[in-house]
């Protein structure tokens, strides 16, 4: 039997302290891209008791995603938004989730992300990362933006870092490890980078803005 909403809240307050947990519960975080970064970010935030998530991805789960993304062996063929929604609800049944199964573009960015306090960039392609970052920084300078660049390959875990670029713009990753032939993505290193993004999100919600 599932615990009640009150029991879940009580357990979270027990772990995080009531004041901080109230902040987490009130926060709305948007995650753009639900691959190795986004699916792991979403799970970390849901477990921490973040109240509202906006999940955006146009793609379906593929069997080749299972080595690093938080989907299950029976989920290939399903939209990532819907599959992740279900997985998150198993972990955190009282979270509220908005899903958008579409591509983020310069045109729809503002409408999709307007309700978010904090936006996570979790795309796979460099060009899409750049598009989202430029659009958010130009058109929605009031938002906090947490991004990632450089987590491919088997290089040291310790190279993955969080940097504060400007007042509300944070960048996680090693900055250089591109995906290339012979330099694929590994679950642990992508998860590390996702954890950096998720943790920066929690720190921002906690009003801890330095890195």
């Amino acid at each position: 039997m599932l615990p009640s909403k009150e029991e879940m809240e009580h357990a979270l307050k027990n772990r995080h302290g009531g004041e901080l947990q109230n902040k987490f519960a009130k926060a709305t975080v948007a995650i753009c891209g639900l691959g190795g970064l986004g699916s792991n970010i979403a799970i970390a935030l849901a477990r921490a008791g973040v109240g509202h998530l906006i999940l955006i991805d146009y793609d379906k789960v593929d069997i080749t995603n299972l080595h690093r993304q938080q989907y299950k062996a029976d989920q290939p063929g399903r939209y990532k938004t819907e599959a992740l929604h279900d997985n998150l609800k198993e972990i955190a049944p009282y979270i509220t989730i908005d899903i958008h199964t579409l591509r983020v573009t310069q045109e729809n960015c503002r409408e999709l992300l307007n309700r978010a306090d904090i936006i996570c960039e979790a795309f796979d392609q460099a060009q899409e990362k750049s598009m989202l970052v430029n659009t958010v920084l130009e058109e929605m300078p009031e938002k906090y933006l947490v991004c990632a660049s450089g987590m491919a390959g088997m290089d040291s875990a310790n190279r993955i870092q969080t940097r504060k670029i400007t007042e509300r713009f944070y960048l996680c990753g090693d900055g250089v490890s591109d995906v290339a032939e012979g330099n694929g993505l590994f679950s642990s290193r992508v998860m590390l980078c996702a954890a950096h993004e998720a943790h920066m999100v929690l720190r921002i919600i906690a009003e801890e803005y330095e890195v």
């Binding site: 795309f123 660049s149 900055g175």
Partner: peptide, 10 residues
């Protein structure tokens, strides 16, 4: 100037 260079992977 800060140039943020994005590489692929996510």
């Amino acid at each position: 100037v800060e140039v943020v260079n994005f590489v692929g992977g996510g």
